[in-house]
Structures are given as C-alpha cells and as structure tokens.
Design a protein around this nucleic acid. Structure first.
Lengths: 128, 128
DNA sequence: CCAACACATCGACCTGTGTCAATGCATTAG
DNA sequence: CTAATGCATTGACACAGGTCGATGTGTTGG
C-alpha cells in the first residue's frame, strides 16, 4: 500500500516511497520514469538551474534563448514540458513569459532518491 | 550527533552544485542528464528499488528477470547500464551475479535537486 | 490599423535507445 | 571430458524524442 507523506513534516509533492523502502509498482515506476526523463536532458537541466539560481526567483523566457545556444522553438518546447510537468510555473506579463521553479516538486523527487541528511538512516542491514 | 550539513563536507559523490545554487555548465548539464537518463526508465527504476529494498542488501540477477516481465537479455542490459554508471555494484559468485546499490551515488544525485530539508530556503524574492 | 515583437505550435527529419532472438562465454555438475 | 546452467554480448528492429524552419497567436507601439 502506498501511503502519502507518512514521514510527517514534509510538504514535498508525494509521488511514492523512497526507492530503498519498497519495490516500485509498475505504474509508480512508469510515473517516476516520466518525471526523471524531464531531467534527462541537458537543455532542460540548464533551464531549471538558470531559473532556480536567479536572484529574482524568476526569469524571462527572452533571457533563456541566449545562453543555451538553441533555437527559440526548442527552448519554448522544453519550457513547455517543464511547465506541464509542474516543475516550472509560467506567468505571462505583457508579451513576456516569466518562469519560476516549483521547489516542492523537486523536493518530492529528491525524497525518492533516499532519506534526507537530517533523517539520515542507516540502510537497515539485516543480519542473517 | 552533529548534523552539520552545511555546504562543506558532503560525502555523496560530487557531480556539481545544487541546481538552485548556480547555472549548470554545458558539460555538467550533459553529465547530469546522462545520469538522470538512467533513472528515466521504468525497468531500471524497478531494478534499483528491488535491489535497494532487499533485506539482504543484495539480489541475485536470477531473481530479477521474473518480476519485471522482461527478457533475460533486456534485464542484463539494464543491470549493465546501472553498474557501469556506478549506481549498482556487481559481484559474481559462482555462476550467479549479485547486485548491490551504491548509496553515495544516489545521495549525490539527491543533493543536486536541492539542499537538505534542514536548510530549506525560500526563494529570495527581489523587489522590482 | 498596421507593423514589430515575444512566444507557442506545427511538421519533418534524424539520432538515440529499449526490446528480443540468437549466440557466446564462464562456471558447475556428472 | 561433456552437458547444463547463468549471465553477457550481438545484431536487428521499432518507436520515442530533440531539433529547427515555417507559421500561428496574442500584445505593444506608432
């Protein structure tokens, strides 16, 4: 059974239990893989990092075509994928589109890879 | 128990700074994307979760072909990719191959997605 | 009202990769 | 030795997805 957010004080978007907790179901695995696939592209990773590292917390799309050395349709395509998946938020102001990261979404992914450093838990080695 | 988890001593395999810290370089992004691409497949995710959740800490390859409903060459292929990338360790005993997870590797990936929950930091909103 | 701009969408191309049958390579049993 | 077992490798195939030029849609400025 998949319980959501059993670990209490985390508001990270729940997708499934950490990998080391229990084997993934077929549907959970497909869902997770689809999300990780978004991070499996260098252009999208750089987009995420640029937006995430922006001091203002948001970046105009017009400032993203330059550093990535990709065409405008390509950047727009990747921004659309990241936004549709909930990793980015888009706000249109005038004729510009501004993007922000959705930190809870990344935190949810992070939790799948293992328990956080705060609750560092030894991997429960079963003695035989 | 010092939970000193500042940006200094992290034993997780270092690949690059967290996404929100600074924009990824082109090579770092390509490297990271290649690693995330390994997690972007449901079969590999289930393999990882099965091995990670094994009470003994290791699993024989002969026990992995069954639950995944994939052919033996396919499972072997994915195990090879995960092992080559350092996410799994392979030890051959007799005619069987046993696999373990390499937790530092997953921890390194986790750190890229954001700082630990202890230092959860709201996005610095700059007034405009 | 029209031109310029910013971004999204479409269509097409092409590389990358997940998949399996067939085969190869060790190791073990008899 | 020979046969059988467990896993890796090969080759071929089909599909997914990144890329860009062309075009569409909404907004601003003159």
């Amino acid at each position: 059974m998949t319980k959501k957010a059993s670990t209490g004080t985390r508001r990270a978007v729940p997708c499934c239990a950490p990998l080391a907790e229990e084997p993934l179901s077929e549907t959970d695995a497909a869902d997770l893989a689809a999300t990780f696939r978004l991070l499996a592209d260098p252009v999208r990773l750089r987009l995420l990092s640029i937006v995430a590292a922006a001091p203002a917390g948001e970046v105009c799309a017009c400032d993203l075509t330059g550093p990535l050395e990709r065409s405008q349709p390509t950047v727009s395509h990747h921004l659309g994928l990241l936004t549709e998946a909930g990793l980015l938020e888009r706000e249109k102001r005038g004729r510009w589109a501004w993007f922000r990261v959705v930190p809870e979404r990344l935190a949810g992914l992070r939790d799948v890879l293992g328990p956080g450093p705060a609750e560092a838990e030894p991997p429960a080695r079963a003695a035989r």
